[in-house]
Each structure stands twice: as C-alpha cells, then as structure tokens.
Write a protein that binds this DNA or RNA. Structure first.
Lengths: 221, 221
DNA sequence: GCAGATGTTCTCTACTAGTTAACACTAGGT
DNA sequence: ACCTAGTGTTAACTAGTAGAGAACATCTGC
C-alpha cells in the first residue's frame, strides 16, 4: 500500500488553504476557539488536531475534510469566472472560497442535499452535480425562476466548448444563433457554445434541467 | 445551520459502514494496528480516534473521510474491502462510445419520442439525447431494467475519459474501483472512466438516469 | 462440553492536544 | 524615533484522552 503519510500533508495544506481565504491564523483560532499558537503548531506539523477540531477546521474553511489530506500545491482552479456572478450562496458554508471548489477527486458523488450552489443575479442558479479532476467541465443542475434569463440585458453570450442539456421540469426558451427552441420536460439538446446564445424562462413555473458544459475553459470571448 | 456535533455521528456511521463490508471489528483493529477494544470504543462513541487513525480508517474502508461525518442510516457510500483489481477483460463492445457519433450538427435538439435507441441484451438501453459535431461525447439517457447490469459476466470495464451521471428514478449500484455506491433519484456523480467499473440495478424497479460519457476517444487500444 | 469466533466494558497509563507566555517580526500613526 | 496593533513562531507545562490489556458475555459449529 502506498500509505504515504497523508496526515503529513495536513499542515502545509491547511496553511495553503487558509492563506487563500485571507484569514489570519489568529482569526481562525478565535473562531475555532483554540489558541493561535496551536493553529500554528498544526500548520507546521508540530502538533495534530483532534478529529473534532479537524472537522471544525474543514467546516470553517468550507472544504471537504478530504482535501485537507491532499498534498499542498494542488491547483485551486475555479471553473467559472466571477464576471457573471453576483453572489455565492453559502448557506451551507461560512467562508468565501473560490467559486467552485478545490477538490480534484477521481470519483465524486454528490448528495442532492449537499450541493455547491452558485446563485446568479436574475433568478438563475447552478448546483454542481459532480466535481472530478477534469478541468473545464461542469456538470450541474440549472434552475431558472419564472421570467429569469441568462443575461438580463438581453445580450447573447458565447464561449468555447459545447453545452448539453436535459429538461427535468418546466420550460426554457433557448435562443441559439437565429434558432429559437422550446425545451420542455424530457426534451434534450446540445450545441456548440461558440454560437451566441441566450436562455429565458418564459413560463410561469420554475425550470430545472441537467446541464453539461464542457471545454469551456474561458467563459468569454 | 444544523451544526450538530457531526463527530457524534462518527461512531454509528463507522459501525454501519464496517458492517456493510462484512469485516469484523477485530479484523479492522488488526489492519489498523490498534486494539479491538479501541475500535469498539470508537464505534460506541466512548472514545475518539486521532486524525491519523481516522484517516487510516477511511482508507481501509475505502470511503472519503467526509462520509464518516455523515449521519448513519443513509446517504451515499458503502464499500468493500480492498482487493486488487488485477485483470479486467474488456470483451465485447459494451460502451456507448463509438456506437453513435456520426452526426455533424452544431445544434441538436431531441424530442423524447424520437430518440435513437440502442437496446442491449441484458436489459440495458441507451437513448441518445443530443448529437453534436463533437466526437467522443455521448449524452444519453440510460435505462437499467431490474437486475440488469453493465456486463452480465460481472467483469468490470474501463476506458479513457470521464463519465458523469444523474439519477432520474430508481436505484443503481455503481462499483467503481473498490468503491461501491448507491445512486438513487436526485443523486449524481462523476468519475474517471479509466477506473474499472460496473453498474447494476439491484432494486426491483427500473433505473433511469442522464449520462454523459466524454473524452472516450479511444475506448480500446 | 470445548474451541473459536464475535463485540463490550472495565481499569490504567503514556502521551499529546491544547494552553499560556514570551518571542520576533511587520506596517501605520503620532 | 516610539508607540500601538497586527502578523506568525516557539518554548514549557499540564489536564485529558487515545489507546492497551485483560476479562467479560455472548454466539456459533464441532
């Protein structure tokens, strides 16, 4: 068994993640209700936390516990850039981190009650359905409130990659290039995202769909 | 937030997962190199492990550390013990990969009544949800009849690329590497397809799910 | 009956999680 | 310069617990 002392990663990894949040060591200590010196000792591998504080630590930094065992230095790539994002719903998390996620597992299973959620301005939100080590791939459930649209200014957007969708419930009007099509429950589609497009929920009910965006490394231009 | 002492879940949860593996408490203890009594104490919440043993425990049961903090009784993962997956034979064409992939449209919309369907002998079928110009991408609805499995021989398969899935209805048991997890309606997951895997519908109802297989350009070689 | 599994609950201690204190820096403000 | 008030680090110490060991009470199957 490989059995690299994954707990040895813990200190550096922790320090790395903390620094990304911009929180000071003392601030962490205060929220955890432990002494600052102890946090330092943990980060430098001079001491180890108990499971309780480990868990609290993960919660505080809003990362799954597992990522604390990964070697430091793993890229923390946000798959979605912040330009279109007003607000990150962190009802389940206490701390701002990168928009979506640090984890880079080869296997990722997501419980519907425990998804990362991004809330867009106009009644649009995305819930991440899986987080694998693949970059430029987003697998998510998208939700359009009645009247909500991709871009309230009415402009079309385009980007590299392809986009695929399956409608779970409700209706969504897709404008792709000069084509307009209505996506209703059970219907599905896919298209080249470099074609200018816009979505809008013209119905009176919420739209929910499974979405797959792929090859979208640079969301704009 | 609920913020119940999630570490309180740890004991029962651990017991639950262990029982699923069929491993005895003493066997666990032996492999962890701790005393059986201590494992018992942990499971009954009378004591707590150190981070090191916690991590070793998760590794041993081949579950991500996080699931040990989930309340016992449900969510995601069960597991089996770590046997080496030595040799996997990818016999007949079992993957959706190169089956389709002829189309060249930049936009593709599919009506549920009008899908291309491939039916496998063993109660498994795939319905194409979109057909764009992208090669090595398959977006489909998969259907597993009760008792159906990926490969009736029980062998695992693997191939390049990644695979993502969302469960619409029913239950599907996924075996990915040495990890076994149950996918039920609303749950989702993704994984590196190069990990040997097998799916099986162990329930009495039909399973339906949205599936996305991608990057599987060279399924064999 | 015995031999071998299983999990549980005591008692006990070596060790460590976590503290307090003082340490050495920075950057600003007066 | 001389203060704060912030940052992280390291010693010395200790109260508490991680974990061991043994004896316990089951169940099998022979």
């Amino acid at each position: 068994m490989v059995m690299t002392d994954a707990i040895a990663y813990l200190g550096p990894r922790l320090k790395e993640i903390r620094s990304k949040t911009g929180l000071s060591l003392r601030e962490i200590a205060r929220q955890l209700k432990v002494s600052p010196s102890f946090v330092s000792q943990i980060e430098n591998g001079k001491s180890q936390p108990s499971v309780a504080t480990l868990y609290a630590l993960a919660k505080l930094l809003s990362v799954p516990v597992d990522v604390l065992f990964e070697p430091a230095g793993d890229p923390v790539a946000a798959s979605i850039k912040s330009q279109d994002i007003d607000e990150v719903d962190r009802s389940n998390f206490d701390r701002p981190t990168e928009v979506w996620d640090i984890s880079r597992a080869r296997i990722s299973a997501v419980n519907p009650n425990n998804r990362s959620i991004i809330t867009m301005d106009s009644g649009v939100s995305w819930e991440r359905l899986a987080a694998t080590s693949e970059e430029s791939v987003n697998f998510m459930e998208i939700i359009y409130a009645p009247g909500a649209e991709t871009n309230k200014s009415g402009e079309m957007i385009f980007h590299n990659g392809f986009e695929y969708g399956y409608a779970l419930e409700g209706e969504l009007e897709l404008t792709i290039g000069d084509l307009v099509l209505q996506l209703s429950a059970g219907h599905s589609m896919g298209f080249d995202s470099s074609i200018p497009h816009r979505f809008r929920n013209t119905s009176s009910g919420t739209f929910r769909g499974i979405w797959f965006v792929h090859g979208c490394s640079v969301p704009h231009s």
